[in-house]
Nucleic acid binder design. Sequence first.
DNA 1: TCGTCTTTTCCGTATTATGGATATTATTCT
DNA 2: AGAATAATATCCATAATACGGAAAAGACGA
Lengths: 253, 253
Amino acid sequence: MPAKPAGGVQSVERAFDLLELIARAGGEVALTELAAETPLPLPTIHRLLRTLVGIGYVRQLPNRRYALGPRLIRLGEVANRQLGALAMPLLKDLVTNLGETANMAVLDGDMVTYLAQVPSPHAMRMFTEVGRQANLHDSGVGKAILSVLDDERVTRLVKQAGMPTPTAKSISTLDDLFADLARIRKDGYAIDDEEQETGVRCFAMAVPGAPTPMALSISGPVSRVDDAFRDRAVPELRKATDAIAAALTLAGD
Amino acid sequence: MPAKPAGGVQSVERAFDLLELIARAGGEVALTELAAETPLPLPTIHRLLRTLVGIGYVRQLPNRRYALGPRLIRLGEVANRQLGALAMPLLKDLVTNLGETANMAVLDGDMVTYLAQVPSPHAMRMFTEVGRQANLHDSGVGKAILSVLDDERVTRLVKQAGMPTPTAKSISTLDDLFADLARIRKDGYAIDDEEQETGVRCFAMAVPGAPTPMALSISGPVSRVDDAFRDRAVPELRKATDAIAAALTLAGD
DNA sequence: TCGTCTTTTCCGTATTATGGATATTATTCT
DNA sequence: AGAATAATATCCATAATACGGAAAAGACGA
């Protein structure tokens, strides 16, 4: 009885589902908790975990609880470098030409993950933003990414993640979000106007045709990041996103 | 005909082998290159990759080459945070009490990966060391980790990774390495005396009984990190590694 | 100490992944 | 440019592999 048309290797898919579940649960889960979140029978879950523990991608705590293993860190790092290396020179150009902090982020589950950043020469910013995650509806990169997805998927992702409002200006309803997405689709760039952090404004643009939805952004204090800045920034962002799209198409020489 | 007594799920193990191979190859490989490095038949490799691409852990470039996918970044981040969060307060204590940069690293394949760092208040150090990898034989944390492994494994790992000599003081032969490991086992701490980077000395100690071999270190300029410093540092390191060992044992509340 | 819940092992079954053979593309050579 | 070559992708019969119900072993709480 073929329930799914997918042609993937089931046990592999299930193993990664488990890893995702552990990650979603904060990095540490009991076997029963996993069983509650998947339709898989307990022995199956246990066998897959046993396998993952054996090869070091999951570690079992003395509690018998399961956590993500350290070998995953390396894989994540390489994946990160891979994409980051591609973007770094472009982000640097953005910072040189515009003088504000440039970021690159990808869609990752129902959030965005920042992959690379070149800080502005102006002020010292936070430790490192790389690896940080943000919500789709309250960040420039998030909205830019949503703008290239179909409405159905937008709804699903946002409902899944919820719509917290870190500032008074944060978008809080699906209607407002779709109105903003319509503007983004029309103009080709997203604005985060103090929606994520008070005092910080940001312009963002999706990489067109990227296999994994991703976006670039340029952000800084509202005092400097104004309409005049936008007029300078948008063409630069376009140039950079186009360059990444091209690099992805030609990747690997 | 059971060739291996292992009770793992083969397809899962194979899938992760492929991910490791891609990582080892620098993040991007052609199908044939993978085939050359595994005994697996091509169709099997292809099917596994297809599965991984389908769920986003591998992406296929327009070249048809395969690269690690962005979903791995998230998993790596969570795994990192998991271990890092545990260590952060302890590293902070080390820095407070000793005034130099504190690191935590784990064994990862045939190298060490730095998981967390608290920089010293003294001088500005490099961007961020987190995620960086170092060799086992030329770093304090690496040698500390080797000291808790059996000789056979030490030999295998070091032969696998090779013994580059970044500085004139780097250990370059297995004999020298084993002599140093003997001292480390006796005294309970490792020294990296400008073996990795000229001008930088470091004391390191393994976390006893850690499920995944890991170590802490405290490092700084040779001018400040001297014998007197060692006498202050070693007890502090012991305290911190014991605390981590205890935390691992009690992890999960 | 005993009872309950969680984790782990067992093992017959058939579903699932396997890989040889082959088709379909890219790439190189002349 | 076209043919030859190599790389990548798909088929499909086979059986080996993973599966999951059932029951044991172990942890936990009373």
